[in-house]
Amino acid sequence: MEKSNIQKMGGLAAEKHIQYILTVEKRKDDFVSVVMEHLRMSGAYWGLTTLDLLEKLDTVDVDEVVSWVMKCQHESGGFGGNIGHDPHILYTLSAVQVLALFDKLNVLDIDKVTNYVAGLQNEDGSFSGDIWGEVDTRFSYIAICCLSILHRLNKINVEKAVSYIVSCKNLDGGFGCTPGGESHAGQIFCCVAALSLTGSLHHIDKDLLGWWLCERQVKSGGLNGRPEKLPDVCYSWWVLSSLIMIDRVHWINKEKLVKYILDCQDMENGGISDRPDDAVDVYHTYFGVAGLSLLEYPGLKAIDPAYALPVDVVNRIFFGR
């Protein structure tokens, strides 16, 4: 059947997406599986969080996942993207998030993970991604989010971390990857979330940034990540979560955005793509469902815009259920 015709019939194809996530790694698509190999930890986080938002996390064998996650931990305390891979801060956060989803943070040697993350902070407050020293505001967010989940923010210099992020603020109110780098919705999410988690949102010009963010909505209802770029489902997450954190989400047209995300579904085989009629992947499926959750789409669990975890998971971490 014609994809666009089915879509006119409506809503979120939740069952199809669940099936898609549960079988995605089995697909015999060589190139995709090769590319996914080293970032399987992030793939696990995207897939499992999507399942949880769709209230289907109980279909997964917890012990299998947890034992695999722990096999990816390196002696330094950081996690690799797969077994036998070098540790990187990106996969360390994904691992912590996956364990949090299953309420299994207790299997971690918290001090060991903390030492790894805290050890990546540089003199100027920024964070490196691994021992090779690449610096990016993405890593600032990851470090802060990770340590916040582990209740160990006191192990880094928060004040310096914040001032580095603020030094990446641009004339349009947005943030880039390093000082002077172009504003980009993905980087903005990282910086806004990091400032939010450290109680430092007062450094943001909320009205200016809010206007830049709501200018990202294009006629089709989708959001782009920078001026004059094409809309993409993953920006639903980055732009929306940022708007929510600075309390300006009512400035965009939510109905049109919901429709745009729904138009990017593969109604036959499940999964969500970046733009209507493109090929689906786990990454955009997660961001699509997470975006709909932020938009309070019926039948989905609520997601926390800063931790990128379901709200009940975050509540469990901070209020002990």
Partner: peptide, 10 residues
Amino acid sequence: GPNPVVPIDY
């Protein structure tokens, strides 16, 4: 691992 979450086809 002994029980891969889902085996990947490479």
